[in-house]
Design a protein around this nucleic acid. Structure first.
Length: 586
RNA sequence: GCGCCUAUAGCUCAACCGGAUAGAGCAACGGCCUUCUAAGCCGUAGGUUGCAGGUUCGAGUCCUGCUGGGCGCGCCA
């Protein structure tokens, strides 16, 4: 309908151009909005306000000329000029009721868009280091990424969801060594556990798996393990040097093969656990992309060579640097250390190169807010590799600040004192957690009160929407008790009998769904969908309380059933996109 | 010190890429179940959109400065 009105206005503008009221070279962006106030009709445009200056006349005068030039339309019953020069359109009853039949025939396809034109978009999100279970902070990124991905798919994009597994590097070594030390403990060795090691209980669980698979074959005496290792912090030493010393000892005593066995058990256990956790949360990936595969497959080398050949790499102090300052970054970035090891950033370069090589039209990074400092260097990489910047998109997801009541919860992965995503899901439920996470704008800081979220009650807005859905189902279930059944054709034929504001509001809301979906997808803003569903549910609850569906009058009854079913369908479609279930009864 | 994000009702958050009287929920107060699920509905109250300027027909939205909060600035990952 908005498109239709925009066409009418476009036609009027063309007419005015011919009459030389408007300059011929004008190509205005015609904006048609839903009105907030019923007195302003159903749709409004501010076009006269925007074109007043180029036309050289007062907004209201121009509005009048535009209205005079508007073509006739069966869909429009009245056009007003209001306020400073808005043009308000009143839609015909048939135009408004048409959406009900459309929803009922398209069902779960209603609202899907082809705006993405099957463009291939790669979405990377969560990508937390596989050094422990996900905590509630990761949950927001997971829910946001999954919903944005699903919205993009619904908008006609070919979406490839990806989790980048940081399975290389020092943190993983610390993890593997922590597991091995716990394994030694359980085999009777005693020593002070390194202060910088991973201390969560899950480390012992993994150690038990090492035990089950290798029994005592990987046991070494504690005295040998700690021989020559720098002192730990509590003993007046340096905790970093201490843990690095232990890692070196683990590699030396176990040999490359033995060390990798422990390492791989730890990695696969935690990565698999994360995959299960996210899977239960309704968050699925097309691909779990291994960082190690970039190093081992020569991708890092290839990407760095490409940058070197293009003259973006230089050597200094025995290390190699990427000249990211040439593309607006604060400082140049090291890619190969003086000891010959490539940096984490070198892997990032290779990964981006790899993404582009795979032919994605768009590459979307969803980061936690603490990674915002990476944007300039990643944009630099994109340009240095010779790809246009508009292929790249970033969204930062702000942290959820945790509270227990009014008290702030401090979190640290290393110390093991975090609230896990799994704990949250167990206590709040997947539906409430998914909904809560995406109901705020992603770049907005979010206060997450655990006590409130765990309260399992009315405070969780998701129930409000689910209840509306369940109510619509409930009415349908009641039909047989009265000896009735739903006659859809009769209902659709009688829609014009639904002339209350309650019913009209509902139909207008239903008609908005496709544009809400499209806008959410293109702007990566799932919270707008959450908001929309709350509004739709609210309209439905109001209508439900004001008007009885199961009337004796068969025409009205079937018409209201048709409307109710259409609302139910749209609620179900929207909830599905948010990863929230749509229960038939509560 | 430099950079990014942010500031809207007592609390948690919206406001459709500059539009009409800034909206919901929770908390507070008052009504509505012998009628389709009261996890609901209706009503009342609550605001100088952090502060000060600027841009224009028009600013919560855009620009500048200031203040408060979050985060980031390694040959770490």
């Amino acid at each position: 309908m908005k498109e239709h009105i925009a066409e009418l206005i476009g036609s009027a503008i063309d007419t005015l151009k011919q009459q030389e009221v408007l300059p011929a070279d004008l190509t205005p962006r015609i904006m048609v909005e839903n009105t907030k106030d019923k007195a302003h009709g159903d749709f409004a445009t501010n076009i006269a306000l925007m074109l007043a200056k180029p036309a050289g006349c007062a907004p209201r005068d121009l509005a009048q000329k535009l209205v005079d030039a508007l073509p006739e339309s069966q869909n429009v019953t009245q056009v007003d000029i209001a306020g400073p020069g808005f043009i308000n359109f009143f839609a015909s009853a048939a135009t408004i009721t048409a959406v009900v039949g459309k929803v009922l025939s398209e069902k779960d396809q209603y609202g899907l868009s082809q705006v993405g034109q099957k463009q291939k978009i790669q979405v990377e999100f969560v990508s937390a280091n596989p050094t422990g279970p996900l905590h509630v902070g990761h949950g927001r990124g997971a829910a946001y990424g999954a919903t944005v991905s699903d919205l993009l798919a619904a908008a006609g994009f070919d979406v490839h969801r990806e989790y980048y597994v940081n399975d290389a590097g020092r943190q993983m070594d610390i993890l593997a060594t922590s597991v091995w030390l716990r394994y030694l403990e359980s085999n009777g060795e005693s020593f002070d556990f390194p202060s910088n090691g991973y201390k969560g209980d899950y480390i012992r669980d993994i150690a038990a798996k090492v035990q089950a698979q290798f029994e005592t074959s990987l046991v070494k005496a504690a005295a040998d393990v700690f021989a020559g290792v720098p002192a730990d912090e509590p003993q007046g030493g340096d905790k970093e040097a201490h843990i690095d010393g232990l890692i070196a000892q683990a590699k030396a005593l176990l040999g490359a093969e033995g060390y990798e066995q422990v390492f791989d058990i730890a990695l696969e256990d935690i990565r698999g656990d994360i995959e299960n956790d996210l899977g239960e949360f309704g968050v699925k990936y097309e691909e779990w992309f291994s960082e190690r595969s970039l190093t081992r497959g020569g991708d890092v080398e290839t990407a760095l060579k490409k940058l070197t050949d293009a003259g973006h790499i230089y050597e200094e102090n025995g290390a190699q640097w990427f000249r990211s300052t040439a593309f607006g970054d604060d400082k140049d970035r090291c890619v190969v250390r003086d000891n010959g090891m490539t940096t984490y950033f070198a892997s990032d370069i290779a990964y981006m190169h790899n993404k582009f090589e795979r032919g994605f039209d768009k590459v979307l990074y969803l980061f936690g807010a603490d990674h915002h400092g990476y944007l300039p260097r990643l944009k630099a990489v994109c340009q240095a590799l010779g790809y246009p910047l508009d292929k790249l998109d970033f969204r930062l997801v702000q942290f959820a600040i945790l509270y227990r009541g009014s008290e702030r919860v401090q979190m640290s992965t290393r110390s093991g004192s975090f609230v896990t995503l799994r704990e949250l899901r167990d206590e709040v439920g997947n539906d409430a957690a998914r909904f809560f996470y995406v109901s705020r704008k992603s770049d907005q800081h979010m206060g997450f009160d655990l006590d409130l979220a765990k309260s399992q009650s009315k405070d969780n807005p998701v129930y409000y929407i689910q209840y509306a859905h369940a109510r619509a189902c409930s009415v349908m279930r009641k039909l047989p008790e009265h000896g009735w059944s739903f006659d859809q054709a009769a209902g659709l034929a009688a829609l014009e009998k639904l002339d209350s504001d309650y019913e009209k509001d509902l139909m207008v809301a239903l008609a908005r769904y496709p544009e809400v979906l499209e806008s959410c997808a293109l702007n990566y803003e799932p919270h707008v969908m959450a908001q929309y569903l709350k509004d739709l549910a609210s309209d439905f609850h109001s209508c439900y309380n004001a008007l009885k569906v199961l009337e004796d009058d068969a025409q009205i009854r079937n018409a209201r059933l048709a409307l109710g079913e259409a609302v139910r369908q749209v609620l179900a479609n929207g909830l599905q996109l948010l990863g929230v279930s749509a229960p038939e009864e509560m």
